[in-house]
Design a binder for these strands. Sequence first.
DNA 1: CGGATTTCGAGAGCACTGCTCTCGGTTCGT
DNA 2: ACGAACCGAGAGCAGTGCTCTCGAAATCCG
Lengths: 236, 236
Amino acid sequence: MATTPRERARAQTMADITRIGRQHLAEYGAAALSLRAVARDLGVVSSAVYRYVKSRDELLTLLLVDGYDDLGDAVARALAAAPGAPHGERFLVFGHAIRDWARAEPATYALLYGAPVPGYHAPAEQTTGPGTRVVRMLLELAAAALADDALRVPAPSAPAPPGLAAVFEGVREQFGIALPDDVLVAGMLVWAGLFGCVSFEVFGQYGPEGLGDDGAELFTRHLVLLGDALGLAVSG
Amino acid sequence: MATTPRERARAQTMADITRIGRQHLAEYGAAALSLRAVARDLGVVSSAVYRYVKSRDELLTLLLVDGYDDLGDAVARALAAAPGAPHGERFLVFGHAIRDWARAEPATYALLYGAPVPGYHAPAEQTTGPGTRVVRMLLELAAAALADDALRVPAPSAPAPPGLAAVFEGVREQFGIALPDDVLVAGMLVWAGLFGCVSFEVFGQYGPEGLGDDGAELFTRHLVLLGDALGLAVSG
DNA sequence: CGGATTTCGAGAGCACTGCTCTCGGTTCGT
DNA sequence: ACGAACCGAGAGCAGTGCTCTCGAAATCCG
């Protein structure tokens, strides 16, 4: 831990770069993220930042991981603020935390869940970890509800064909969560549906002016329906 | 209609530009769309294409409208191939048509339903028309099912607050379709959820290798659940 | 038919981007 | 104290969007 001055300076510069990068991301969007502009704001010539960041793509990866962490923190914080609430209530908190964060950080949200930036492929080894935090929280919520008998498990549907069964087994293994196939299918739908609702709102599919404050109300009703699909009673 | 040779040449050049633009979009993605590259493929110097297209953004709008039309045609074609089928069946056809098109044209799909291209704002007067074709088809499907008593209408939930009620009324007016609030809420969820599922698959949220052929099977199950949320029996 | 007008493509040019390279100066480990 | 590692500046290359001018061709109109 004997950090030399040079090491501390380097860490400081790295932090400055990501901070400025986050600002530019929020202000101009992902595809307009420019290393030269970051360098200008840093008060340094463009080639200097290449000492710290190998390429524009690496800066994007940095901001990607940063964004996943930020979103994960926000959701975890919101859930921690309602520790003993019923699972349906916690599901509402979970969903609204995602929506609130996405509306506060639309550019970062777009980087995480929008169209992939052309020519950029996120290195899986660095991004899958923080990237799966949110869906893991959702699956854990479902598992907790199931354990508390708060989940209305549907009549088992037709068994999954081998390929799909392997996918389910992979998910159970990756997350270390034992959920029956039907709950897993519903959980994935809830996951995708929730982000579909948020994306439509953030990306402007609901018209140029969006939904404004009524979006929260509509979103709650959508969460109720999604919770219903999962077998979770969200609202009396 | 007396098309002069010059007019025909201009129309031909415009068609060439959109054709090459579509190719580049599919090959390199939206943000990498370059007017200069299009000009090169057209065998012409870059400034020449500015005679036909005011800016890169206008080319994007051209391709945007083109994409909406293409998707709308694909879905309409698929639905037309199953004219007398029960509404649940038609809903499955509807969903899979969207998914199939999105997987075949991921870059165009990303342009329509992914994160908005930075700095680019689609002119509403040109894009809302073709852009609402798909959701209109979904609402018409729901209305047809309702008229045929094939929709299990849920017990009316709490009445919408004034702001949200105005949103619903606006949708009913815009599409000229009379649907009760609760069906409208479910329909919007189905819309967003469906595109959420497709986006997750196309944008690679299901891991680097995606779901492969099992995606269709899983998607069908998700459509069943979404249809259920709408009150539509999709599969016996 | 012939002059006036419009249209068009070519080319130069500006400001910007990502990225590489070299060249000095500072700091570090030994 | 000295060689090695590190770091910032600057030049440079190839690419981008977009603007401007200029000459040639096509069109319109008297």
